[in-house]
Simulated assay, not measured.
Amino acid sequence: MTSANWSEPAGGGPADTVGLIGLGPMGAPIAGHIADAGYRLRVWNRTRETAEQLRPHAEVADGVERLSSRVILSALPDIDHLDRLTPSSVLEQWQHDGTARLIVLSTTSPDKVRALAARVAPFDITVVDAAMSGGDAGATAGTLSLMVGADRETFGDLLPLLRTFATTIENMGPLGTGAAAKLCNQLVVAGTLVSLAEALHLARKSGLSDSQLARVLKGGLASSAVLDLKADKLLGRTYELGGSAVNQLKDLRYAVALGDDVGARLPLARESAALFEEAVNQGLGGHDHAVIQEVLEAPQLHHTNQNRISSP
Score class of each variant (00 low, 15 high):
residue 109 S to C: 12
residue 137 A to Y: 04
residue 1 M to G: 14
residue 54 L to T: 14
residue 123 F to G: 05
residue 89 S to C: 07
residue 222 A to M: 01
residue 147 M to G: 08
residue 10 A to Q: 09
residue 301 L to R: 14
residue 87 P to A: 00
residue 144 L to W: 03
residue 13 G to W: 10
residue 178 G to V: 05
residue 134 G to S: 02
residue 228 D to R: 09
residue 26 M to P: 07
residue 162 L to R: 00
residue 172 M to R: 09
residue 35 A to H: 10
residue 14 P to W: 12
residue 287 H to S: 09
residue 121 A to G: 12
residue 246 V to K: 08
residue 190 A to H: 07
residue 155 F to R: 02
residue 251 D to K: 08
residue 10 A to F: 14
residue 140 T to A: 10
residue 278 E to P: 07
residue 302 H to F: 03
residue 31 A to D: 04
residue 211 S to Q: 14
residue 231 A to Y: 01
residue 122 P to C: 08
residue 70 R to I: 10
residue 15 A to H: 14
residue 31 A to K: 11
residue 310 S to P: 10
residue 88 S to M: 00
residue 291 V to K: 03
residue 71 V to P: 05
residue 139 A to Y: 06
residue 224 S to K: 03
residue 148 V to D: 00
residue 49 E to P: 03
residue 119 R to M: 00
residue 1 M to S: 14
residue 76 L to I: 10
residue 194 V to H: 04
residue 191 G to M: 09
residue 133 S to Y: 01
residue 120 V to C: 10
residue 180 A to M: 10
residue 173 G to K: 02
residue 96 H to P: 12
residue 116 L to H: 11
residue 28 A to N: 04
residue 143 T to S: 08
residue 248 Q to C: 13
residue 77 P to C: 05
residue 90 V to C: 08
residue 133 S to Q: 02
residue 11 G to V: 00
residue 100 A to Y: 11
residue 34 I to M: 04
residue 207 G to A: 03
residue 156 G to M: 01
residue 80 D to T: 13
residue 285 G to L: 05
residue 75 A to E: 01
residue 75 A to M: 11
residue 298 A to F: 03
residue 10 A to Y: 12
residue 45 N to M: 00
residue 269 A to H: 07
residue 233 K to W: 08
residue 296 L to E: 04
residue 78 D to K: 12
residue 165 F to E: 03
residue 49 E to S: 13
residue 112 K to Q: 13
residue 276 F to Y: 15
residue 90 V to F: 13
residue 194 V to Y: 01
residue 29 P to V: 07
residue 298 A to C: 01
residue 36 D to F: 07
residue 197 A to Q: 08
residue 11 G to W: 09
residue 56 P to Y: 14
residue 43 V to I: 14
residue 209 S to R: 15
residue 215 R to W: 10
residue 163 R to P: 11
residue 200 L to V: 11
residue 308 R to S: 13
residue 250 K to L: 06
residue 249 L to Q: 02
residue 265 R to D: 07
residue 153 E to S: 13
residue 24 G to S: 00
residue 113 V to W: 07
residue 143 T to V: 03
residue 277 E to D: 14
residue 257 A to K: 04
residue 195 S to R: 10
residue 122 P to Q: 08
residue 126 T to S: 11
residue 1 M to D: 13
residue 166 A to S: 07
residue 169 I to C: 06
residue 40 R to M: 02
residue 50 T to H: 07
residue 155 F to A: 00
residue 227 L to I: 11
residue 298 A to D: 00
residue 232 D to K: 15
residue 168 T to K: 15
residue 8 E to C: 01
residue 33 H to Y: 11
residue 213 L to Y: 04
residue 288 D to A: 02
residue 149 G to A: 06
residue 286 G to E: 08
residue 31 A to E: 06
residue 35 A to P: 10
residue 112 K to S: 13
residue 50 T to W: 06
residue 237 R to G: 00
residue 11 G to P: 04
residue 4 A to P: 10
residue 136 D to S: 11
residue 202 L to E: 05
residue 258 L to V: 13
residue 186 Q to C: 01
residue 43 V to W: 09
residue 91 L to Y: 15
